[in-house]
Computed example of a mutant assay.
Amino acid sequence: MFPRGFLPAGAGNAICYSGYREGQDPRTGVFPDYEQIKQDLLILQGNWSLLRLYDCSQHAHTVLEVIATEELDFKVMLGADLGAEVSNPNCPWGAEYSDAVLQQNRDNNNKNINDMIALANSYPNLVIAVSIGNEASVDWTDHLVPVEQLVAYAKRVKSAVEQPVTFCENYVPWQEKLQPLTPHLDFISVHTYPVWEYQSIDNALNYTKENLLSVRDTNPGVPIVITEAGWTTMSNGRGMEPHNASESLQARYVPELLDWCKEEGITCFVFEAFDEPWKGSEDPAEPEKHWGLYRVDRTPKPVVAALQK
C-alpha cells in the first residue's frame, strides 16, 4: 500500500529519545551526563535499535559518544533544532517576535544546521539520516520557518553529508504547503497523533492510516517514514480529554501501530522513550510530559510488556 521508507523492512524498531530527567532542561543547558545516557540506552537496547534525536546539542554528542564507546547496537537519526524565522499569528500560545529576535534565530539556525552537518560527518557509521527541522511549517507552530528557507536548508545539507535528508512534520502540511520542499528530500517524515485530534482508541489506528494515505496520495512514489506517533498517559484536559490519556490506552495503541507498520514495511519512530518533566506547562498532568514508554524514574509502563508479547 505504501512505498517503503529509507530503511529495509525488519531493520529494527525505532524510537524517539531525549534523556532529560528531573531538573534537566535543554533550554537552560542542563543535560544528562554520560552515565545517565548509558543507563537509558542499556534499558532500550535489545528492543530498539534506531534512535531519533532532535538537536545537535551536548545531549546528541553524548548519545553518540556512548554508542561508540560502549559499542552499543544503535543507529541514529539526527535533527536540527530550528527557531522561528517569522512570527506566526496562528500559534494559539503566542508567536509574535521582534525583528531582533527573528534575526538571532536565523543566526542560531544556521549554526545548528552547521553543527548537524559536522556531527553527521563525524559519525558516518552511526548516523543513518538527518532532518533539517521539526514541526516548523504547521499552522500552529511557535517556530515557523518559511518553506523557501527549508528548501535552502535541505539543499545545503544534501550537498554536505552522505546520509539521506528529510524534514519532520505533521501530516497536514505534506498535502500541499510542503510540495516545493519534497523534491529536495530523500524521504518524507510524518507525525500522526490521533489522541491530539480527539480520536477514540477504537478509531485511532484507522485515523493514523488515513493520515498516511493523505500524504501518500499527494506525494506518489516518495518514501514515507513515521517519525512521531504515540499515546500520552496523562492529560490535564488542555488539548485532550483526561479519560483519553492513560497507560492502558497507550498499551493498546502502540503495539497495534507497530504491527501495522511492520506489515506495510513502514519505519515508525515511536514517541517516545522516557517521560520528560521539563516539557509544557508547570502542571504535573501536562500531557507533553507523559508520552514515554518509561516513566521519568525509568520504570516501564504497561506498554513495554505489551510490546514484548
Results as ranks from 00 to 15, higher is better:
V222N: 12
S246K: 03
T227H: 06
Q179M: 05
H191G: 15
L212D: 08
T227F: 05
L249V: 00
S246W: 04
P242H: 04
H184T: 05
L213Y: 01
L181S: 07
L185M: 14
D217K: 12
N244Y: 02
H243C: 04
L258P: 11
Y207W: 13
G239D: 00
G230C: 03
V225D: 07
H184K: 09
N203C: 01
L181Q: 05
Y253K: 00
G230K: 08
L185A: 12
S200C: 04
T227Q: 05
K177W: 07
A251I: 03
Q250C: 07
E228T: 13
S214M: 14
T218A: 11
R252T: 15
V225L: 13
P183E: 00
Q199A: 07
V222D: 05
H184Y: 15
D202G: 09
E264H: 12
R216G: 12
A245V: 00
D186R: 03
K177M: 09
E256T: 01
R252K: 15
W231F: 08
G230E: 09
G221N: 02
H243K: 15
N244L: 08
E176P: 12
V254S: 08
I201W: 00
L185C: 08
D186Q: 10
K177R: 14
P183R: 00
Q179C: 02
T192A: 15
W260I: 09
G221A: 08
S214W: 06
N206A: 14
K262A: 13
L257F: 03
A204C: 08
S246D: 05
I201V: 10
P180Q: 02
I201P: 05
P194L: 03
E176K: 15
V190F: 10
R238H: 08
Y193P: 03
T192H: 04
I224A: 10
N211C: 15
N219F: 10
S189P: 09
L185E: 14
Y198C: 11
P180I: 05
L258V: 11
G239H: 02
V190D: 10
W231C: 04
K177H: 09
G221Y: 13
N244H: 12
V222K: 15
T208N: 06
Q179L: 09
T267W: 02
S246N: 10
L249E: 13
L257K: 02
S235G: 11
E197K: 06
S214D: 10
R252Q: 14
F187S: 13
Q250H: 14
N206V: 01
E197S: 11
E247C: 12
G230N: 02
Y198I: 01
T182M: 04
I266T: 10
N219K: 07
N211I: 00
K262W: 07
S248P: 01
E210W: 10
Q250M: 06
P194S: 00
N203T: 10
S235F: 13
G221V: 02
E263G: 06
K209S: 00
S189R: 14
